[in-house]
Design a protein around this nucleic acid. Structure first.
Length: 567
DNA sequence: CTTAGGG
DNA sequence: CCCTAAG
């Protein structure tokens, strides 16, 4: 009896706050969110750092633009997004990449006499197809430099699963940028120029809805969807789900092994996962080389009407290191494509900063002018290079054991990358041997000990993204995706998002069931408003009609939602 | 982990 | 897309 009473009273006490039965979520939410406790000090400190860094970047950009109206002086990165993704209102600067590059802090924001002042590399691009560098470009800038032949056919332009991009941040990898150097005979003297480094995606192609990437992906997903449709059962759901997660973990690992040469790690990797099929992919960016080179040389010529003292050059290509990608034999081709894409984008997504090589020798003093550095002597003969180097791992980063453990065996996530510097044979023919030696040295400056970075701790959840206040790249649903979603909801009903996911988006790793739920929400809304108010890629009215019909139907059949059996 | 809903 | 409450 006594016990009962106590229990009763205990329950009564609960009425004080949380037991208010079914208050609208909005009310509950509001109440709780306002008294939301502060996060741990560590996280706060990190966010603060990120915020400061972001602020610096912003200020520097505004400072640049206010002191010079020439675009080339602006450090800017073009995110590889489709047109309607740009400048998402409300997002503000939240997606603004945080630049933690120490060089940003080393230089004043105002102009000074330092020729090579600052290079800021943002990392929100999913694909870097083109990097163009201009130093103190005058109005004579030739736009063709940056709009050279798109490299659609190259692996880097394959469909992207950006889910991996946010796992992001320290890689034991050095990406090297091969560039065409083009230097005039004049010394950069009182230049207020800044290093302009733009990471180009093939904006135009996406813009024109040649949208090859998304289309390809969609095709693939449809293909897999339809092929696996009948075999998808709830019983297999978790396994499949886990499988994809594992693959994703593999591909979103924050560390990768770095070695001077591929053969240094290749055998090691295979020994780790001998039971799995090794898929060795070597990225080769040889295409168009000759023609591009010619183009670049064309732009090397001294500007006619400009009595400038500027150094003008462009980076013609970006060398993607060798990749090792391991996927299960049961992986689909589509997932393989995404895997490769993820690996590439993950590389490019890291916190990178730019290094400068002059004749293969790394220039470490950021305060030196180009003149002092010697980047001013001869056109077509000068060897000027850039490297994209990862920021070193944080001290707090785990330093896993180099020896394989059973756990690591379960999670074969190794994507060793070997930085390779391609050289321009023509340009460098004069001092080749010496240069190569120097470059090798310069590598050593940035290559992180492979022992430290070789093994990826799988247990580590990809929560880093949230700690860094990053959000996934926005990926608007394609019409085909909408179609698949509508079809699934028509069959399963709204609310069974996990089933919808399994049924129609099981291969689309980047679409979570929450995403699908959100999309359905917006679809219902979209279908309810006038076509004039709609934005983004138009959804066929036929689909919107089906959305409304399904929405109405399942609203009337709440009780049936959980009775229908999964196909 | 899923669902639901506001932000 | 994110975040969170709640089941």
């Amino acid at each position: 009896m006594v016990v009962k009473k106590r229990i009763y009273y205990g329950g009564f006490h609960g009425l004080i706050a949380p037991v208010i039965p079914k208050a609208p979520r909005s009310l509950r939410r509001r109440r709780s969110s306002q008294i939301k406790p502060s996060e741990g000090g560590e996280i706060c400190a990190f966010e603060l750092l990120a915020a400061v860094a972001g602020k610096l970047l912003q200020e520097s950009e505004s400072s640049i633009s206010s002191t010079d109206k020439h675009k080339p002086h602006e450090v800017k990165v073009k995110p590889a997004t489709s047109e309607h993704e740009h400048h998402d209102q409300g997002s503000g600067t939240e997606s603004q990449p945080t630049n933690l590059d120490p060089t940003v802090n080393e230089f004043p924001h105002s102009d000074n006499d330092s020729g090579l002042e600052r290079a800021s590399v943002s990392t929100t691009c999913d694909v870097i197809q083109k990097i163009d560098t201009n130093l103190g470009m005058e109005a004579s800038e030739d736009k063709n430099i940056v709009n050279e032949t798109p490299i659609e056919s190259q692996p880097a332009s394959q469909p992207t699963d950006l889910e991996a991009l946010s796992a992001v941040k320290t890689y034991g990898l050095k990406d090297e940028v091969e560039m065409e150097s083009c230097v005039n005979n004049h010394v950069l003297k009182k230049s207020s120029s800044r290093l302009h480094l733009s990471l180009y995606s093939d904006h135009v192609h996406r813009h024109n809805r040649g949208n090859m990437k998304i289309d390809i992906r969609d095709d693939d997903e449809n293909y897999f969807r339809y092929n696996h449709y009948n075999s998808k059962r709830r019983a297999f759901g978790s396994r499949s789900h886990a499988g994809y997660k594992r693959i994703r973990n593999i591909l979103t690992s924050r560390y990768r092994k770095v070695a001077p040469k591929p053969k240094d790690y290749g055998s090691e990797v295979r020994s780790f996962y001998h039971k799995r099929k090794n898929i060795y992919m070597r990225e080769q960016y040889q295409a168009d080389k000759a023609s591009k080179r010619r183009k670049s040389f064309h732009h090397c010529s001294k500007p006619a009407n400009t009595k400038d003292t500027h150094v003008k050059f462009s980076i013609k290509s970006f060398k993607v290191p060798e990749l090792y990608v391991e996927v299960p034999e049961t992986a689909t081709v589509g997932s393989l494509k995404r895997s490769v894409m993820e690996a590439i984008t993950a590389i490019l997504q890291g916190q990178l900063h730019v290094g400068v090589l002059v004749q293969g020798k790394k220039v470490r003093d950021d305060n030196r002018t180009l003149e002092q550095t010697g980047i001013s002597q001869k056109c077509n003969l000068e060897s000027l290079g850039f490297t994209l180097e990862p920021t070193l791992p944080e001290p707090s980063s785990p330093s896993p054991s180099p020896s394989p453990s059973p756990v690591q065996k379960e999670t074969p996530l190794l994507i060793p990358c070997s930085p390779v510097l391609e050289k321009n044979e023509v340009e460098h023919v004069n001092a080749r041997s010496e240069e190569e030696e120097e470059v090798e040295d310069s590598k050593a400056l940035v290559v992180v000990d492979p022992e430290i970075l070789s093994i990826v701790p799988l247990s580590e959840k990809p929560t880093k993204r949230y700690q860094l206040s990053q959000r996934r790249t926005r990926r608007p649903f394609s019409v085909s995706e909408v179609e698949a979603l509508v079809e699934a909801v028509e069959t399963l009903g709204a609310g069974r998002w996990r089933d919808v996911k399994m049924r129609a988006f099981d291969d689309a790793n980047h679409r979570t069931y929450v995403d699908l739920k959100d999309k359905w929400k917006t679809l219902v809304h979209t279908a309810s408003i006038s076509p004039q108010q709609r934005r983004g890629e138009p959804v066929p009215q036929e689909l919107l009609d089906r959305v409304l019909a399904a929405h109405a139907y399942w609203s009337q059949h709440q009780n049936e939602k959980h009775q229908k059996t999964t196909m």
